[in-house]
Amino acid sequence: MQEILKMGIVLTVVCVISAGALSSVYNVTKNKIDENVRVSDIKKRQEVLPSAVNFVEKEIKNKKLWSGIDKDGKEIGVVIKVSPRGYAGPINTTIGINKDDTISSVAITKLDQTETPGLGVKITHDSFKNQFKGEKGEELKLKKDGGAIDAITAATISSRAVANGVKEGWDWYMKEVRGQESRVRSQGEKHE
């Protein structure tokens, strides 16, 4: 009986100390983790639309987008985010689109993906991401699929995931953002 009581007390004490330690570590690190994500999001938006000085958050059909405003207060493009399915997990891709509907730039950091080290992870390299600059429409596909993007050697799945993700994001932008704009404009013209 005494033995069982001792066991119970020891287990309880160990559990309580462990839970207490973890909850305090969690509280300290959580702010830092959230802060890291926030800072990195801002940095990625700046990276894909470098000449914008301010970003205005909007929401269309439950999907967030940011319109980039330059120093003269003019809208120079939008930033959207997509998460296509890669080889090992989702690839969180930030896409900047210029006013002329071409891709301004694509941002994927090492933290946005879980692709194979040394292989799929090369989607985060500039040599891959820069291929998207200035492209639009059907060009946003791998060369194998009839587009303009070179796949990374031995990492076709990851490359294709990014290309198709960017294409999908671009299609959404054309339909929901540009489509709406032109509809509003044509309605406005009718009124006049």
């Binding site: 330690a21 973890l22 570590v25 969690y26 300290v28 983790i33 890291n36 933290l111």
Partner: peptide
């Protein structure tokens, strides 16, 4: 778990 959270916060 401590290593997990500390790494997540400071060695991203």
């Amino acid at each position: 778990t401590i290593v997990d959270y500390v790494m997540h916060a400071y060695m991203v």
